[in-house]
Structure formats: C-alpha cells, structure tokens
C-alpha cells in the first residue's frame, strides 16, 4: 500500500513544514517514507510544494505521476495539480483562497475555510498548515491523528518551539473536526 500526498500553496503558508511532519509521522508509525520539496525560486514567495510518499515497502520513486492526495492551499496549486491526482484520490481545498469547485468527479473533494479556521478558531493565522494537515488526516484515514500530534510536538520541541505545541494541537483538531 502506497500513498502519495502533494501539499501545495504560497511560500509562507507552511506547506514544507506540514509535509515534513506528515512524513515524520509516517516514519514514527512504522512506514517507509520520502519527502521531496520543490526548491528554488518558488521558495521565495511563489508556489511552494512538497511530495510525501508513505509506503509499506522501501519507496522507489519519490516523484509520482499520480498522487493519491492533494492539499491545495491556494488556487494556483489546485489549477496545477488537480488533473494529476489518481482517480479515487482525495483533494483537500482551502476555500478561503480558492473560489471554485474541484472539476474532477472521480476524486473525493473536501472543502474548508482554512484561513478563517486558523484565525478565528485557533487564534493564529499562521496555523493554517496544521489545519490543512488535520483535515487531510480525517479525509484520508492514512494515519491516526494522535501520531501526527505527537510528531508535531516532537518537531516543535526539537526546534525549541515548545510554546507553539498547544496551539498547533488545536489547529490539527480544528482541521480534523471541520470535515
């Protein structure tokens, strides 16, 4: 069983970190994983994305033709990746910044207002990446939410950001519960 997830948005929306936490959570859950960022000019304000592969066996290709899921945090991301998602896959849409529906009828689309949830429910607009990740966890059922929470907390501790653990836990919960 192999799952591949593209997380894509503006630089600054935290898609790279969300992908790292998802990959690390997969590893902590006993899976083989790869994490591959887009690197280069898009890191400086354009569209940033990363691809995470979670698998029962050693991962061959870290790049995928058809990802099983897309987390689209802005419109260019949905435009760029919608047609590449595998039939039966999952697309999580940030309705705050994307004013259209998913065109595909052979995928499972999930809509939530990530910016408003982060700002109003969590109280920190920068928490949108954890809102998005929580929503993906619910939509896909790939990993237990608690594993993702524990991994996020571990990641925050390792980078000396303990004070953000509680807020990010609430963000994961808010995204999870929004679907």
């Amino acid at each position: 069983m192999e799952r591949s997830i593209i997380i894509s948005g503006f630089g600054g929306q935290g898609v790279i970190l969300a992908g790292k936490i998802l990959a690390q959570a997969g590893m902590n859950h006993g899976l083989e994983v790869t994490w591959l960022p887009s690197y280069g000019p898009e890191m400086r304000g354009g569209t940033a994305n990363c691809t995470v592969v979670l698998s029962d066996e050693l991962v061959g290709s870290p790049i995928v033709d058809e990802a099983t899921a897309l987390i689209a945090m802005n419109l260019p991301s949905l435009d760029k990746f919608e047609q590449t998602i595998a039939a039966g896959g999952h697309i999580v849409v940030n309705r705050s910044l994307i004013d259209r529906q998913v065109d595909r009828t052979d995928v499972n689309a999930f809509y939530l207002d990530m910016n408003e949830i982060a700002r109003d429910e969590v109280g920190n607009p920068r928490a949108i990446n954890m809102v998005a990740l929580g929503a993906y966890v619910k939509a896909s059922g790939t990993l237990p939410l608690q594993v993702v929470k524990d991994t996020m907390a571990q990641s925050m501790r390792e980078s000396g950001k303990e004070k953000f653990i509680e807020m990010n836990e609430r963000a994961l919960d808010a995204g999870y519960n929004a679907l």
């Binding site: 790292k20 590893m27 994983v33 591959l36 690197y39 870290p62």
Partner: peptide
Amino acid sequence: DGLLGQMMEP
C-alpha cells in the same frame, strides 16, 4: 544530484 540532496528519508 539535487533531488537526492534535497529529499528526506529515514
């Protein structure tokens, strides 16, 4: 190459 340099793996 750049892909191997940039990617993460356990």
